[in-house]
């Protein structure tokens, strides 16, 4: 494999990881602060993508669509928290899983009733649609570079929010001891709604960004949701920093696994068998990664309770 190809694949891995981070950040925040397993996080991703596609189609502007995706997913998050999730904090995880799984079904079919059964059209804005030439004359999709950049900015923004603002202090306090901060006069109900809305808006934003290079269709959020769970388990549940490290690790391992494993098995197998074994093993690679990390660090790479 040439160095340029390897570099391109690393960039692909990084970009994939950054997208996963946008999903995982919200998920880990909600789980860490509120102790809630939210399976409907993928549906919020879908809502973001559909809102972006619908608004972009109506106005012709991808950017308005992007704003709409954040607003729509955030608003849906507030509604879901106030009408459903709020009743689940004192229940055990199984009840939460059941209720949020029901939300997946309701939101998916709701989306299908509104937008129909066929995938929607959503494309990257004109100046990001093509490739750009990087150093050494190799071409890379401009939109993917933009995703890496935006993902980095979101990570920085979240870091500042958590460490430098009053809201961030409350979030961290809520994670550490929710009864104590309630006793200190912080309105815990409002805090939870805000945290849930932030997580939802991030998922919606990720959905809109990815919708432009994927297919905007019902059920698009669930595959990403599974990966996001892998990421937060690897990174350490509740930790934004862990989510960032975990997602980039998962992105790079998955991409390199897909590229290198069939070639590796081809060294001692015929091509057809190597392709199929390589493909099968590469789809397992991130779960193997997760298992190995959990053996050595059962609480994930960045543990909050350390």
């Amino acid at each position: 494999m040439s160095t340029t190809l390897l570099f391109e694949q690393l960039l692909n891995g990084l970009q994939y990881g950054v997208t996963l981070f946008l999903m995982a950040a919200g998920l880990t925040l909600v789980f860490g602060v509120m102790g809630l397993i939210n399976l409907a996080h993928g549906s919020l991703y879908m809502i973001g993508a559909f809102a972006c596609a619908a608004v972009a189609a109506a106005t012709g502007s991808f950017w308005l669509g992007l704003v709409a995706s954040i607003v729509a997913a955030g608003f849906a998050g507030v509604l879901i928290e106030m009408f459903v999730i709020r009743r689940l904090y004192d229940r055990d995880h199984l009840d939460q899983v059941l209720a949020t799984f029901a939300l997946i079904l309701i939101l998916s079919e709701g989306c299908r009733m509104v937008f129909g059964s066929f995938p929607l059209y959503l494309d990257a804005p004109g100046f990001l649609a093509g490739p750009v030439t990087l150093f050494g004359g190799f071409q890379y999709s401009a939109y993917r570079l933009a995703i890496i950049l935006v993902g980095g900015l979101v990570a920085l923004g979240l870091y500042l929010l958590i460490t430098k603002t009053r809201l961030g202090i409350r979030i961290r306090a809520g994670e550490a001891d929710r009864e104590m901060i309630a006793a200190l006069g912080v309105n815990i109900a409002t805090l939870y709604t805000i945290v849930f809305a932030i997580g939802a808006a991030l998922a919606g934003f990720a959905g809109a960004m990815m919708g432009a290079i994927q297919s905007v269709q019902v059920g698009m959020g669930e595959p990403v949701l599974i990966l996001a769970f892998v990421v937060i388990v690897i990174g350490g549940i509740g930790s934004i920093k862990g989510a960032l490290i975990g997602s980039i690790l998962v992105g790079v391992v998955d991409t390199l696994g897909r590229v290198t494993l069939p070639g590796f098995f081809n060294l001692f197998m015929d091509t057809a068998a190597a392709n199929s074994v390589g493909a099968a093993l590469s789809s397992m690679s991130i779960y193997v990664l997760m298992a190995v990390i959990l053996i050595f660090k059962p609480e994930g790479l960045v543990s909050n309770n350390a």
Partner: peptide, 10 residues
């Protein structure tokens, strides 16, 4: 799968 960057590079 929804991401084909690695395959397109190949």
């Amino acid at each position: 799968a929804t991401d084909y960057a690695a395959e397109i590079a190949q």
